[in-house]
Design a protein around this nucleic acid. Structure first.
Lengths: 189, 189
DNA sequence: TCGTTTGCCTAAAGCCTTTAGGTTTGCACA
DNA sequence: TGTGCAAACCTAAAGGCTTTAGGCAAACGA
């Protein structure tokens, strides 16, 4: 009987692919074992259980997004950086809806995903360097941007903006323009 | 054997309470039957299945929030209305985390929850009357506000803003101030 | 070559969802 | 006051998912 070569990492990566195909909340030890042609119980040697598996997939997604964001922000500042960061998240969510859903998975404190969260904060902070905000406005702005991106993508993926005009693609850049202007004039608000 | 007096409505309402107690995704036909002291199969006479049950709970939550918002907006305009609407959503989410989670449940097109969604849009549109935006900026602004509220509450409930200063309670009004200013100057952006 | 570790297996318990079909309850109406 | 009927609730059962326990065999070091 040839071995499948399972490792926690390969499981997480395959789980991420599976999430994009069948939806994150359909991903389970059971579904993943099927994909590897392996008995369900075999997964439990590599992963503590369903929750652990999903957390690892979340981690994969958060890391991938942070990597993309890092790359996109290199050499950009101000409005350019803002638009680029926004595009990274939105594009990632559209290319990989399952992984994006995974990134929203409630992960328990102490997990490495908390660090990934911090990494995303820092990337947003980098964007804000172009706007010269001082504390606490900078933290407020990080929260605003995080909320807006998450919220917009969530609603868009949920279909809230479909079947209404203007299209979501048209609204998005105009909203970013408005936010750019807001950030440039934050103190004067 | 005394009857429990089940109806689709009572099930949805009890499901909403249960969601606040044990978390929305723990709510299931099985859990609800336990609470009513009834066999699981009995629920299937009133509700088509787990998905239908959760959709009905989502509906309850969306309606309750819209009712509160309606009341809160009466007699308010401009910044007051904005702050009041934001408070309705945020307070509801904190008082009823399970119900709030339910309101995010992906509901299929054609369901009455779609109308509830429209009702929320209209309430946001009412807030914007105080800012004199014309189309398509008004739709953009509705989407911005919806995204921001949903996003902020989601992150806050997920603990993303805990353990960092300033507290979420401090950031929130400042963010609303910034948004108020943004809306007042939208065209000039 | 042999032992040991490790990877994957079978088996089984316990939970959940859903369907099928039976019994009882209580209301409408004679 | 009885009687019939629709509904409400029940038992039974199939099938899926998660998790634990213990067994066989493959790979690897000595």
């Amino acid at each position: 009987m040839a071995r499948a070569g399972l490792t926690p990492d390969r499981l997480a990566r395959a789980g991420a692919e599976l999430a994009d195909e069948i939806g994150f909340d359909q991903v389970s030890p059971s579904a993943l074992a099927r994909r590897f042609g392996v008995q369900v119980a075999s997964l439990y040697a590599h992963v503590r259980g369903a929750h652990d598996l999903r957390s690892r997939i979340a981690q994969v997604a958060l890391d991938e997004m942070a990597d993309r964001a890092s790359e996109a922000l290199a050499g950009r500042a101000g409005r350019d950086a803002l638009v680029a960061l926004a595009a990274v998240y939105r594009d990632y969510a559209r290319e990989h809806p399952g992984r994006y859903a995974a990134s929203q998975y409630r992960v328990d404190p102490g997990s490495p995903a908390v660090d990934a969260g911090r990494r995303h904060s820092e990337l947003t902070r980098a964007v804000l360097r172009g706007y010269n905000l001082d504390e606490p406005a900078q933290t407020d702005a990080i929260r605003l941007l995080g909320s807006l991106f998450n919220g917009y993508i969530g609603l868009e993926l949920g279909g809230s903006f479909a079947h209404t005009s203007p299209s979501s693609d048209e609204s998005w850049p105009r909203i970013l323009d408005a936010i750019d202007s807001l950030l440039r004039n934050w103190t004067k608000s």
